[in-house]
């Protein structure tokens, strides 16, 4: 049922396909995206499987798993970091989105929170790392303030560790991103659904468990997966915060740009990049699968 419009659309396109002037209108777009999006993607995928002189090889991939390689631990860190901040961020962000949605639709509060979240979610990068250093480093105001109160916060080195400080900073852009992507779904909830539940004899708990919960679940899962890829791909904040080591994959890939390349491993960066693409593609596939299963009832 839901697929029908797609099918007819495709059929119409094929039926109406004539090498006419109409197609010339979209050539610039396809040319541009081919050069700057499709070819780079192909470069990564192909590059992962060739050596410095262009001969096919599996060495790049093998190098990732080698005992001297720090890639596997970094991948593990990246995955844990992304899962934890995606789930935590999604839960907190969803509650925030619900709270904001109950405010006046055109009110200042909502505009304010949405704009703020837009900035923190998409603009932050280096500035966010600075913000956390200014707050939590040894000289940071919160550290100083807590010390004055007699609370010892330790060495402040925690701020630069991937599973402590970095997680906290990531939450700082994951929660706002959740608000941005989840708010439309929450606002799509009709007040009639709650009232209908009540008149039919349901409690608030019934409403959340049987009506609002199931209706929001597909959007929630989708948003959580988006948060995962967002954290998994993030580079700027981590690069600005952690300068001593490369505990996560994006930093390792960045490292291949600046460090001396070991002979024969020119394309290891591409292999790492491809590993990232594979992870993201898996998540997207998972999303598509869940979406198809869980949302037969969605309007398409």
């Amino acid at each position: 049922m839901a697929d029908r419009p797609v099918l007819t659309g495709t059929r119409r396109a094929l039926g109406g396909f004539r090498p006419s002037g109409a197609l010339a209108g979209v050539v610039p777009f396809f040319a541009y995206t081919t050069v700057f999006l499709l070819i780079p993607t192909i470069v990564v995928v192909v590059g992962a499987f060739v050596d410095g002189s262009g001969r096919p090889t599996l060495d790049n991939i093998a190098a990732l798993g080698g005992s001297t390689s720090s890639f596997l631990p970094a991948l593990q860190h990246s995955l844990v970091l992304s899962v934890v901040t995606a789930v935590t961020g999604a839960v907190i962000g969803a509650v925030l989105a619900y709270a904001v949605s109950t405010a006046r639709p055109d009110g200042m509060l909502k505009r304010f929170v949405t704009a703020l979240c837009g900035v923190l979610a998409q603009f932050g990068g280096v500035a966010l790392a600075f913000a956390f250093m200014a707050t939590f480093s040894l000289q940071g105001f919160l550290t100083v303030w807590l010390t004055n109160l007699g609370i010892d916060t330790g060495s402040s080195l925690w701020l630069y560790q991937w599973d402590k400080g970095l997680m906290l900073v990531y939450l700082y852009f994951q929660i706002p991103l959740m608000l941005i992507v989840f708010l439309p779904a929450v606002e799509g909830i009709k007040p009639q659904w709650r009232e209908a539940t009540e008149t039919l004899g349901g409690t608030t708990w019934t409403y959340w468990r049987r009506v609002a919960g199931p209706i929001l679940m597909p959007s929630f899962i989708g948003a959580t997966l988006l948060l995962f890829t967002n954290a998994f791909s993030a580079y700027a904040t981590a690069a600005a915060l952690i300068s001593q080591a490369s505990p996560i994959v994006p930093l390792q890939i960045g490292g291949t740009f600046t460090s001396e390349v070991i002979l024969g491993q020119e394309n290891v960066g591409k292999a790492m990049a491809m590993a990232m693409v594979v992870v993201v593609a898996l998540v997207m596939w998972l999303y598509a699968w869940l979406d198809k299963r869980a949302s037969r009832w969605l309007v398409r």
Binding site: T199, G201, W297
Partner: peptide, 21 residues
């Protein structure tokens, strides 16, 4: 008496069907 104990059958203006059922 709260709504859910009143036994009222209500039909709304629109969009009141639960979309996932």
């Amino acid at each position: 008496v709260p709504t859910n104990k009143r036994d009222m059958g209500m039909v709304f203006q629109a969009y009141s069907l639960f979309p996932h059922m």
